[in-house]
Design a protein around this nucleic acid. Structure first.
Length: 486
RNA sequence: GGUACCUUGCCCGAGUGGUUAGGGACCGGUCUGCAAAACCGGGGACAGCGGUUCGAAUCUGCUAGGUACCUCCA
């Protein structure tokens, strides 16, 4: 398959280092607040990649971290740890906050049908490894200790390696731009970044280290944990575009400094979700949490949107494009998904004929081709819609499909809709299986309605349909029967 | 200011130098007790101005508008 590698700014053939094994690392959430729509994007993008690589036969070790230490708050005077601040405000143990939001994150991800990663390591659980990593960088001569903190020596590093190769920045510009910042007396240069930070007295999340009682720097956990679980060289590192600089650039520098070589072979970055053209983010205060989408409780939402609608909405755009949120766009996605879902249910009921009048050939190949081209999910979806037309034509009795074609079509839908796009749809159009009695009862009511219709007893037939509609069912008459969903 | 990127029909959103993306909405038709769904058909587009080319939405230059990163951020 082809993958767009941010490092080379081009699509490249993906060749794993140790096939059939693939190492995949993705930057996970900082657990100090509820996940919003922006968090769903990388989760779903790399879930798609994970599912597709697995489909291709690779054995993927997917590592997605939980950041629970180290990130600094932008307006905090003393560089206070985000989680510590929130914890003090709410009078909770930091770990209690971490656990609370981790649980909620995982709950949201499950709702979005995002598969759990193979390993979900916490930064706080890898302090020892991070200290060792800092020591390695110190030993290599690319860091210095200053008043209990350890800083990465960007200038020294830039002499031996290419600092800025991922983001396209160069050190001279950085120097010109960041010299204005104050409060950086401990550092030799403003663009140096912390590997280990000495904790201030009011800072409650801290650990002992050779340099001070403190906490690891912002970028260190990813270098440390990716190396620990995927090795000194691994295949793919993913994350949001906003992490390219400084986070991923710093990661590259740290890893090269400590190990003497690059660790990541393919860098993949998903684009942002915007709202009215602006990036949706915490600092803009314009984000909508996933929970709010699911409940519809937000002024910008006209109604609740199911997790699958959110997932489908995100998959309808290519992961490297920005996607603009609006209630209208989401409603359009919802209707599209509904059409796909209903067609899927009908596909299960089709009765094969001697031969096909509809053409379903090449669907599998076209879908595979789209996926292999840097995960082009919108194209996959467009092919599925094309074949939906064929399914509905047969369902309407206006065409036929052979046994062989039908089986192929079912298999392709199962593979791409359910397996790769990860759309959780049931074969009864929304009702979970295992409720046979309940389904039987609804079927019986509709059988009675059918009988009433035969007798032209429209009063009874409408009464049944109207009552079912009131209860939340959707009833649709078909050529010689009915179908329903909840 | 620096760097990167974007601008497609009413809306969302793909795209290869020459052939229909797709979805939603809309209009017409078929089917139907009604409704819903489905199917068939339909219109419309590539920010503006130049250039390269037999031919450009697709390559190139300029202009306009917008976004992201440079500070925590998916």
């Amino acid at each position: 398959m082809q993958i767009y590698n941010t490092l080379t700014r081009s699509k490249q053939e993906f060749i794993p280092l140790n096939a059939p094994h693939v190492g995949l690392y993705v930057c996970g959430p900082t657990v100090y607040g509820d996940a919003h729509l922006g968090h769903a994007r990388p989760a779903i993008t790399f879930d798609l990649l994970y599912r597709y690589l697995t489909h291709l036969g690779y054995k993927v070790r997917y590592v997605r971290n939980i950041t629970d230490v180290g990130h600094l708050e932008h307006d905090a005077d003393e560089g206070e740890d985000k989680i510590a601040k929130k914890a003090r405000l709410e009078q909770l143990e930091p770990m209690e906050v971490v656990q609370y939001y981790t649980n909620r994150y995982q709950h949201d991800m499950e709702a979005l049908n995002v598969l759990p990663p193979s390993i979900e390591p916490h930064a706080s659980g890898h302090i020892i490894e991070q200290i060792a990593f800092v020591q390695k960088i110190l030993d290599a001569g690319y860091a210095y200790v200053s008043e209990g903190s350890v800083y990465f020596d960007v200038e020294k590093y830039a002499k031996d390696y290419h600092y800025g190769k991922l983001s396209g920045r160069n050190i001279d510009e950085l120097y010109a731009e960041t010299r204005e910042l104050d409060g950086q007396q401990e550092k030799r240069h403003s663009y140096d970044f912390a590997l280990w930070k000495k904790a201030s007295p009011e800072h409650i999340m801290h650990w002992p280290s050779p340099w001070s009682e403190g906490f690891p720097g912002w970028h260190l956990e990813c270098s440390t944990m990716s190396t620990k679980y995927l090795g000194e060289q691994f295949d793919i590192h993913g994350g949001g575009m906003d992490l390219m600089f400084p986070h991923h650039e710093a990661e590259i520098a740290q890893s090269c400094a400590a190990l003497g070589h690059d660790t990541v072979r393919y860098w993949m970055h998903n684009n942002m979700i915007t709202i009215a053209g602006k990036k949706m983010g915490k600092s803009y205060g314009n984000f909508i949490t996933l929970e709010q989408f699911f409940t519809g409780k937000h002024p910008l939402l006209t109604k609740p949107f199911s997790p699958m609608t959110i997932r489908f909405f995100i998959l309808m755009a290519h992961y490297r494009s920005t996607v603009d949120f609006s209630s209208e766009a989401l409603e359009a996605a919802e209707k599209g998904l509904e059409r796909l879902t209903e067609t899927y249910a009908r596909l299960q009921k089709l009765i094969p004929a001697k031969d096909s009048t509809v053409d379903v050939h090449g669907l599998r190949e076209r879908c595979e081709e789209a996926m292999a081209d840097d995960l082009n999910s919108p194209i996959v979806i467009s092919h599925l819609f094309d074949s939906a037309r064929a399914v509905n034509t047969v369902f309407d009795g206006k065409g036929t499909i052979s046994q062989e074609d039908l089986e192929e079509l079912k298999a392709v839908w199962q593979l791409f809709v359910v397996g790769i796009l990860g759309l959780r749809i049931s074969d009864t159009g929304g009702v979970e299986s295992g409720l046979d009695a309940y389904k039987g009862a609804v079927d019986m009511l509709l059988e009675m309605r059918l009988e009433a219709k035969r007798l032209k007893d429209w009063t009874t037939s409408d009464r049944i349909r109207n009552r079912l509609t009131e209860l939340g069912f959707t009833v649709k008459d078909t050529k010689d029967g009915f179908e329903w969903s909840l």
